[in-house]
């Protein structure tokens, strides 16, 4: 096949009507912080549940001038991040990067980068469940009604029960928040550590749930408050004295992993944001 006949697809894969629909819904999502906006959600060449919502947003907003970063669990080299980046790159030709500071659009699953993001950047989050009321009201028709009336009593009961049973607000990730003092919103499975980054941020956050067919947004400088009780305040995973074994950072989200060595190996705790950790290591090596 010639080079020309290889170009079977529209720029950014989606047809222009699909992009227009998503763009219209994104504008409404921004005007309604935290509110779930239904969208048609097209089929894609990657599986449902593997980032199709985030991907449809990225493909609808990307322009040839963008620089793109894709992370999964904070890691650019995670297999699914590689795969999504490869698809976006092959259908747009945009420049890609692993450097948070160099990116104009960052698509992410389960993490917000450690490096503070700027006003000229957009963070696109892949969302699995979309509606935080799912835990207490799986029926969409009733859950939509509850959102429309800001009727979140059942959610508070759920939170209270978790305190009674576990002595704490038991939700690890996907912590529910109230946005702009109105809508209850799912934070996607970002750890609690990342939740405060949503509050009064410089950056626009866009959320896409492909299988659930919902889009939502948190505009910059918007009040985002985690659900909490006075006597059981929201806490992150932070533990005093925690430290990344690789770059020495004391204020990052850490994950454990196994490192092989001549003694058979050991468990090590390091930054989950791999590019941030590498950047710090490189800086230390440069100044050493």
């Amino acid at each position: 096949m010639s080079e020309a006949s290889d170009q079977l697809y529209n720029f950014a894969l989606l047809d222009e009507d699909a992009k227009r629909e998503i763009r219209r819904k994104l504008l409404k999502a921004v005007a309604l912080p935290g509110h779930l906006v239904p969208f048609a959600s097209r089929d894609l060449p990657i599986a449902r549940g593997w980032g199709t919502g985030g991907l449809q947003i990225t493909l609808s907003i990307v322009t040839p001038a963008d620089t793109l970063k894709v992370i999964d669990q904070g890691d650019d080299e995670s297999v699914n991040a590689v795969n999504l980046r490869r698809l976006i790159n092959r259908t747009t030709g945009v420049t890609t990067t692993t450097d948070t500071a160099a990116a104009t659009i960052i698509q992410t699953r389960h993490r917000i980068p450690e490096e503070p993001m700027r006003a000229d950047q957009i963070l696109v989050l892949q969302v699995p469940m979309a509606d935080p009321l799912r835990w207490v009201e799986p029926n969409l028709e009733r859950a939509t009604m509850m959102h429309s009336e800001a009727d979140y009593g059942k959610m508070w009961v759920y939170m209270y029960e978790s305190v009674v049973r576990a002595g704490d607000l038991r939700i690890a990730s996907q912590y529910p928040v109230i946005v702009n003092r109105r809508y209850l919103m799912d934070t996607t499975p970002i750890p609690r550590w990342d939740v405060p980054k949503l509050h009064m941020a410089d950056t626009l956050y866009l959320f896409g749930a492909g299988r659930e067919k919902r889009i939502y947004a948190v505009p910059p400088y918007t009040i985002v408050e985690p659900l909490q009780f006075e006597d059981y305040p929201f806490r992150t995973e932070y533990r005093p004295g925690q430290r990344c074994a690789r770059c020495g950072a004391e204020h990052t989200f850490l994950t454990e992993h196994f490192v092989s060595d001549s003694n058979g190996g050991r468990w090590e705790t390091t930054c989950s944001d791999a590019a941030y950790c590498a950047k710090r290591v490189a800086q230390m090596e440069a100044t050493a």
């Binding site: 170009q7 697809y9 529209n10 720029f11 894969l13 222009e16 790159n89 030709g93």
Partner: peptide, 12 residues
């Protein structure tokens, strides 16, 4: 990497 998509038209 081979680009499999056409560049956007002026309107797009």
């Amino acid at each position: 990497m081979t680009i499999v998509a056409t560049p956007p038209t002026p309107l797009e």
